[in-house]
Structures are given as C-alpha cells and as structure tokens.
Nucleic acid binder design. Structure first.
Lengths: 203, 203
DNA sequence: TGTTACGTTATGCATTTGCATAATGAAATG
DNA sequence: CATTTCATTATGCAAATGCATAACGTAACA
C-alpha cells in the first residue's frame, strides 16, 4: 500500500471513529461535521471529500457498526459440540450479547438516538440492518421457548426485554457511574451483569 | 384566574409540551428553540420570556417529567392488604412500571439522550432526580431477593435489567412498529409485554 | 525529472442558531 | 376612562452550520 493510500485510509478511519463518538453522544442533528472533523484531527472539508455528506457519513458509521457486530458477535450454533445442552447454549448467547454491549456501547447509543423517531435515516437503518437482527433474535427466543428455557409469552416483548436488559447498563454508563458508584467498563462488573441477566432469563 | 393569567399558563404549558417532544426526539443540541416554539404555536421569543433560556427550559421539562412520574407512579406499599403476597406485590410494581413506560415514552427518551454522556446538565438531573429513583429500585430489588422472587445477584445489574427490559420496547416504538409490525401503544400489546416481563422476572 | 493525480487546505456563502432589545397592544387597575 | 402592567411580537446580531469551489502541495508515475 502506497504512502498516499495509507494516509487516506487513516484519515477515513479517524473520521469514521470520530463520527461514531459524536453521533452516538449527540445524535444526528446535535452533531456537527466541524466538531467531528476537529475530533478526528482533520480539516472539515475532508468529510465531504471522503464521505460526500453528513448524511452519508452517518450511514457509513451505521454500516460499520453492524458489520463489526456481525464479525464480532458470531453466535455459536445451537448444536455446536461445545455446548453440553441448549441451556448452556442460551447462556453462551446471553453472555456474548452482554460482552458486545459492554465493548461497544456506542452502537446502542447511536441507534437509540435515531430510532426514537420515524425519520428517513431510521427507516433505512431498520430495513437494511435491524430486520436481520430481528430474525436472529426471534429464532433464538423460539428455540429457548421450545426447550423450556424462556416462558411461552410474546416473542417481540421477550426480544426487547432481552436486548434492553443487556444494553441499558452500558448505554447509560455515565448514570451508572454517578448514581451507583460503579464502573460498567470494569470486567468484574460486566461479569456480574452477565451473570445476573443469565440468572434472570435462563430457567 | 383572569384572562391574562389563564393565557399565560396555556402558553407555558404548550411550550413545555413541545419541549418534551422535541428534546426527547432530538436531544438538547439537536433541538432548536425556534422549532420548539413553532411546534407549540407561539413566538420564539416567548421561550426566553417564560423560561429564561434553552438550558432552563430543558431543566423545566425534566422537572416536569419526574414530578409527573412521582404523581402517577405511586407504587403501592409492600404490606398493603391489596396484595395477597410479596409475589403479588412484585407483579403489581412491574406492571405499574411497564404501564408508565408505555404511557410516557418521552420520559425515557429524553433522559437517555442526555445520560449517554457526562454533561453538566446530566449531572444536575442525576443528583436532583435519578438518585431518588435508585433508592426505590434498590429497596424493591432487595425485598424481592429476600423473598426469593429475584435471584441473589448484583443489585445494580438487576436494576438496569429491570428498567431496560421495561422501557426499551416503548423507547424504540418506531423500530418495534417497522421491524416487528406491532404497535407498542396498543393496550393488548402493552398487556402482553407486562405479562412477559412478569413471567421473566418473578419466580 | 517533468507532469499528473489526488488528498488536503483555504475561503466563501446562505441558512440556522440562541439570545438580546425595543416596540406593541390589550387586559388589568385605579 | 386614563393609565399602567405585562404578555406578546418584531427585529437585530454574532456565531455556528452544511456545503460548494478553488487553490495548493506532494506522492506517484511516465
């Protein structure tokens, strides 16, 4: 790779990284491209050059989030010999989701900022990515219900119960720190949360 | 109350109502006072006149939310004769929290927008209001643990599991509608969610 | 080594923003 | 009925915003 190509990739990466941070903390309207550029340490005109527009940058950030999620959150198959039982499999899935939420809290933050209202941007993300997440969540819940691990109640409700219970602790990390005096980025705290969620969900 | 006082109260109420909606959907930075004024159907200069500044308007909105919550979410006492058992009491609390989250989704939306980062505004809200919520949540969880209703795991984790599981379904109502094809404002759907959460939490 | 390609920077512009100040007009008051 | 009070409106302003355009400088290449 060239010097120029390397530099170009580095610039794009730093812009994307800054975009994730600012968008996730302030939402699309609250974030300014100049603030993102300053945070990335580049000239603001480079955002237009590399990402065309603020809207396109936001979509690039969302695409990055879901691609990384797909890569990192490769859930093990239910019949994987690594699991002694479906119950163990369910525990592994819950733990994996909690660890992902803890590792990348900006994912849930950025999405929740946009999913509280029905914008064009939100609809694009929903159709492009969230629909797939629904499939996985639904399949997992149905399996757990069949095996008697989860109660046989509303599947959509269970889906948001699961996800909400897994991510709010990290989405609201500043609140957890200030009001409860504990740090949701501490590995031990994360383990305790995963254990708690497993105890609540797996019967 | 004379004509002027009545009109003044009506103006303030409509501004506050609009502020709740715009702040909860766009966050503090993303919301503009002119948009709030337009949404309330009043001249934008009235916001400064009645609420001094954008920041003060935000704090008035948050104050309103928590005061209304305190009024509407008056949790029944554990030893109230209306409850046959602590288990029934726990079910009543869970149902009440779910119904409140469904009735006023803007509360969680507005707070989550500000609680994802450690701003001065957030710290004020945390110290002024959220600390009290913590007390109630902690007491409720400890009671449930003593009675064998909830597993004896991390209390802060359980608190965010409970709240996250109760409110995400309504915070992300547009997502639920688009991706799952159901309406989180439908009373039957709300009942199903309350039932699901109760089934998951109460053992 | 001279030229080109292209990542980067400088600058401009119309619009939006929060806030300030002065003007207005009708209800309240005596 | 004259006057005052005060909720409301009109207008201004500096700063910030997204985006456009042109200049710049150096790595890449023939």
């Amino acid at each position: 790779m060239n010097v120029r190509a390397r530099q170009k990739a580095a610039t794009q990466a730093s812009i994307l990284q800054a975009a994730l941070e600012i968008f996730s903390e302030k939402g699309f309207d609250g974030a300014s491209t100049r603030e993102i550029a300053a945070h990335a340490g580049v000239h603001h005109a480079l955002i237009k050059y590399h990402f065309t527009s603020k809207d396109a940058l936001w979509r690039a950030a969302v695409t990055f989030l879901f691609q990384r999620q797909a890569a990192e959150l490769s859930l093990p198959a239910p019949n994987d010999p690594a699991h002694a039982s479906y119950r163990d499999f369910a525990r592994a899935v819950i733990r994996a989701v909690v660890l992902y939420s803890a590792r990348h809290p900006e994912h849930a933050r950025l999405m929740v900022q946009e999913s509280v209202r029905d914008s064009e941007r939100f609809r694009w993300a929903a159709d492009e990515f969230i629909v797939q997440t629904r499939q996985a969540a639904e399949a997992f819940i149905l399996l757990c219900q069949r095996e008697g691990i989860l109660p046989k109640v509303s599947v959509p409700a269970l889906a948001y119960i699961f996800v909400g219970a897994a991510q709010l602790f990290y989405t609201l990390a500043p609140e957890v720190r200030r009001v409860w005096g504990i740090d949701p980025s501490d590995p031990e705290v994360i383990e305790a949360h995963a254990e708690a969620l497993t105890a609540v969900l797996v019967r």
